[in-house]
């Protein structure tokens, strides 16, 4: 109970623990920066999932149908979370914008990878994977900036 800072506020979609926070009247500060932190982590985990799935596909270890489904499902998560980050109110609009851009780039790359998969175009998929890696690095940087101690 001692520290009620970001740790306790988790808004994973199906857990909705933030509601519990409200219930317990422990928090008046379910602030948007905590949500953005959580959403950034969701995006990071999702993009790594896509990379793993594409690696598996490239190695012939995952069927194409499964890989496409995975990309579609994760792509939806990315789009949803991106929209949430965009609409969150925050005191740092610059960092928020770079986060939003990174998520956007990820979504675009996922869509391209999906198209590549469906066309069975290995080069296109590799290309998209490269973009995904770049975009997740950009996400990590933006995230670090967002939560860096401000002067």
């Amino acid at each position: 109970m001692a520290h009620q800072t970001p740790d306790l506020i988790v808004s994973r979609r199906y857990l909705r623990l933030d509601c519990l926070c409200l219930l317990l009247l422990m928090l008046s500060a379910c602030s948007s920066s905590d949500q953005i932190e959580q959403q950034s982590r969701t995006v990071a985990s999702a993009s790594q999932t896509v990379l793993m799935a594409l690696d598996a596909w490239a190695a012939g270890a995952a069927p194409t149908a499964y890989t496409v489904d995975t990309l579609q499902s994760i792509g939806k998560t990315l789009a949803d979370t991106g929209a949430q980050i965009r609409s969150a109110e925050t005191s740092e609009p610059t960092e928020q914008a770079s986060l939003t851009k990174a998520v956007n780039d990820l979504s675009v790359a996922v869509t391209r990878a999906e198209a590549g998969l469906q066309a069975d175009d290995r080069l296109k998929v590799q290309d998209a994977q490269q973009d995904l890696r770049l975009a997740s690095r950009a996400l990590a940087t933006a995230y670090a900036k967002y939560f860096a101690p401000k002067p």
Partner: peptide
């Protein structure tokens, strides 16, 4: 691999 959230 950086996949920390399994919700799918």
């Amino acid at each position: 691999h950086g996949v920390t959230q399994v919700d799918d």
